[in-house]
Design a binder for these strands. Structure first.
Length: 357
DNA sequence: AACGCGGGGAG
DNA sequence: CTCCCAGCGTT
């Protein structure tokens, strides 16, 4: 069964006339393909593009990436979100260097074993870099196939993924796997977007959703994300022109990124209330000034309400928290990967002496 | 199978 | 506001 479905033919034809000129389409280097695919996971092209250029510039080869300190990688990743991608990026870079002598494995089955490479990325890399016939299934593909072929199952239910994978692989033009995969994703991005441009669509005449007035109800996706509210009280503790920071631990947001001394509470509290249960810095209440409160920070599944305080400890006072806390100068702080919330907090309060030194 | 994980752009 | 983006790893 190697006949080409009209859908596939028209899609590729559309792509050849409408494709954007994106940098990762100008190379067959599996390293750059891989880098771009990881950057683009759950990330819009416009947001990922500058990061791709920056990583390509700073880490031209997989050897450069494998050799970089994790903190440097997280600093470059700052602002892109889903920071486990940056940590897995380096795990895979090291595996490729140490186990494969710097050459990426070529097969889907080998690629998917690497950290940070799942079904989508394995299909993308194996087809784009090596021409292997594996159809990508991402958000675009779910949307296009659900609409065009009238698949009304819940795409949020993982058991339905195989329905789309089967169909996508049946539609795949095996001799042009890379171009077909690029075509379907570009079509989803530019034509069959969440809010689609059906007027200018070249394949609407065959589209189930268009013909049945279901463009706005397909794909079916249940949404059950509940937003957790959290209350972060940050203390920018300064002494001897240095700031106290701590690396965030496992199994919470922003793992591996740096932040200031944090007291998390169950609700919005006053400074006095916050310090009531604190054993370490309550003594310095008289040296503490409240900073303008940062805007609530919205994550996909948490909303962070925060307050910020500046604690100016006199140079001759004894004060050490030890352990996981580190004193950093403004320059050292700049070089650490930080959540956007912390970056904004610094920028918004740039008048602090330590940040001007 | 369900959940946790960022940040931002578009409507 | 809501939706969702070139998804993946953990439990």
């Amino acid at each position: 069964m190697s006949t080409i479905h009209p859908f596939s033919e028209q899609l590729v034809s559309w792509y050849e006339k409408n494709a954007r000129d994106l940098p990762w389409r100008q190379t067959n280097d599996p390293y750059l393909i891989w880098l771009s695919e990881v950057i683009l996971q759950q990330t819009r092209v416009a947001q990922g593009l500058p990061y791709f250029e920056k990583f390509k510039e700073n880490f031209p080869t997989v050897f450069d990436l494998a050799a970089a300190p994790e903190n440097v990688l997280l600093r470059h990743w700052q602002g892109l979100g889903y920071y486990s991608r940056a940590r897995n990026l380096q795990k895979t870079a090291k595996i490729v260097v140490e186990q494969f002598k710097g050459f990426f494995p070529k097969s889907y089955q080998e690629l998917i074993k690497l950290p940070g490479i799942g079904p989508y990325s394995a299909a993308a890399i194996s087809s784009f870099a090596f021409g292997e016939p594996h159809a990508v299934v991402d958000g675009n593909v779910f949307r296009i196939l659900a609409r065009y072929f009238g698949i009304e199952v819940d795409i949020a239910d993982s058991k339905n993924r195989k329905i789309f994978e089967k169909l996508a692989n049946d539609l795949l033009i095996k001799s042009q796997a890379a171009k077909f995969n690029q075509s379907i994703m570009e079509f989803g991005s530019l034509q069959c977007s969440p809010s689609p441009n059906c007027d200018g669509c070249p394949i609407k005449i065959g589209c189930f959703a268009f013909l049945n007035g279901k463009v706005n109800s397909l794909p079916v996706k249940t949404n059950k994300v509940k937003i957790l509210s959290r209350f972060f009280n940050y203390f920018v503790i300064e002494k001897n022109n240095k700031i106290l920071v701590k690396k965030r631990a496992n199994k919470d947001i922003w793992e591996g990124l740096y932040e200031f001394y944090l007291i998390e509470t169950e609700s919005v509290l006053s400074l006095q209330e916050i310090l009531l249960n604190d054993k370490k810095i309550a003594f310095f209440a008289n040296f503490t000034n409240e900073l303008p409160a940062p805007k609530p920070h919205q994550l996909s599944h948490q909303k962070i309400y925060s307050k910020a305080f500046h604690v100016q400890i006199p140079d001759n006072f004894e004060f050490e928290l030890g352990g996981e806390y580190e004193w950093k100068s403004a320059i050292e702080l700049e070089e650490l990967g930080k959540p956007v919330l912390i970056g904004n907090l610094i920028t918004d309060n740039f008048q602090l002496p330590v940040f001007n030194s």
